[in-house]
């Protein structure tokens, strides 16, 4: 009888351990971990081109994750990409003249939004727009431009060369 009891306890412990591992994998190592954020506020940013930026991509400041991309829309009249950034409430002292840029992690990695802090004493408030933005660098365009030398725009003329926005 005692033997039987110990099987049941052992089996129970094993199953608990297994589910604990599954819960850990599911909540700590997947995108679920990003949903589980505390209080936050949103910022808007307009880009002429966001490249491969995807929903839930990280927003980083000085390389540290401070929030996520929570919406991507196309503005019908200006034909700009309107990106909504959800920033963790903890980071509430980001200067309101900071700039946003779409960067690529590594050469071929995922794209993310990088915030470059400005010098203003006023912090961003909920719903503010990031005025200074820089669009995604398109690898194809860079290569195309390099190959054609100083040629302006390339033969197909499909995409104009990237210019810093907000200038």
């Amino acid at each position: 009888m005692a033997q039987r009891q110990s099987f049941q306890i052992g089996t129970g412990l094993f199953i608990v351990l297994g589910f604990a591992a599954l819960t850990y994998l599911a909540t700590q190592t997947t995108s679920i971990a990003n949903y589980r954020q505390g209080p936050s506020y949103t910022l808007k940013a307009r880009f002429t081109n966001i490249g491969q930026l995807k929903l839930r991509a990280p927003v980083k400041l000085a390389g540290v994750r401070v929030g996520t991309v929570s919406a991507i829309e196309l503005e019908p009249d200006k034909l700009d990409a309107l990106v909504t950034l959800t920033i963790d409430r903890r980071f509430d002292k980001i200067p309101d003249d900071s700039a946003a840029a779409v960067f690529t992690s590594g050469l071929l990695g995922d794209q993310y939004v990088a915030l470059q802090p400005g010098g203003s004493t006023e912090p961003f408030k909920d719903g503010d727009e990031v005025v200074l933005t820089q669009s995604s660098m398109q690898l194809e365009e860079l290569i195309g431009k390099y190959l054609v030398g100083q040629g302006d725009g390339g033969k197909n003329g499909e995409k104009p060369a990237p210019k810093p926005d907000g200038k």
Partner: peptide
């Protein structure tokens, strides 16, 4: 450490992967 985890959580999906 932050890079390790944040890149993982950015790309790993609960349904299609786990």
């Amino acid at each position: 450490n932050g890079t390790f985890w944040s890149n993982m959580t950015a790309s790993v999906d609960l349904w299609t992967d786990v």
